[in-house]
Amino acid sequence: MLKELLYHCRESDDSCELVARFASILVHRRGLEELEQWTADAQAGGLPELRGFATGLRKGWDAVTAGLTLRWNSGPVEGHVNRITMLKRQMFGRAKLDLLRERVLLAS
Rank of each mutant, 00 (worst) to 15 (best):
T55R: 15
A107G: 02
A42L: 05
Q90L: 13
L32Q: 14
L47N: 15
A20V: 10
G46F: 00
A23K: 13
E4C: 01
H28E: 08
L100C: 01
L99V: 04
N73H: 14
E17P: 01
L18K: 01
V104E: 02
T55D: 15
D41F: 00
D98Y: 04
G93Q: 04
R101K: 11
W61F: 02
G31S: 05
R83W: 03
E49S: 05
G46E: 07
L97R: 11
G60V: 06
S74M: 03
C9Y: 12
T55L: 15
E34S: 10
P76H: 02
E11G: 07
M91C: 10
C16Y: 12
I25K: 08
D14L: 00
E33A: 14
L50H: 01
T69Q: 09
K59D: 06
K59W: 07
M91L: 13
I84A: 05
C16G: 03
V27R: 12
R71L: 02
T65Y: 11
E49N: 08
A95C: 12
G67D: 02
G45L: 01
E33D: 12
G67R: 00
D98C: 06
F53K: 04
R29S: 07
R58M: 04
R29P: 05
V19A: 08
L18T: 08
G60S: 09
R83F: 06
W38A: 00
K88A: 13
G31L: 00
C9A: 05
A44I: 04
F92Q: 09
M91R: 05
R94Y: 10
R21C: 04
C16H: 15
K59A: 02
E78F: 12
D41M: 13
I25E: 09
L50Q: 08
L99Q: 04
A63Q: 01
R71W: 09
D62T: 14
R58F: 06
A107E: 11
R83Q: 08
E4M: 04
K88G: 08
A107D: 14
I25T: 14
D98V: 13
R10N: 05
Y7P: 07
V27I: 06
A23C: 13
G75C: 13
L97K: 09
G31I: 05
A54M: 03
E36W: 12
P76A: 00
A44T: 09
M86F: 04
A23D: 09
E36L: 14
T39Q: 11
P48H: 06
E102D: 10
E4A: 08
L5A: 09
L100H: 01
R21T: 15
V77D: 11
G45C: 14
L26Q: 06
L50Y: 01
A66W: 13
R21N: 05
G52Q: 11
V81W: 03
W61Q: 07
R30L: 14
V81I: 13
S74Y: 10
L35T: 03
A95I: 09
S15C: 07
T69S: 11
G60Y: 04
E4N: 09
T65Q: 12
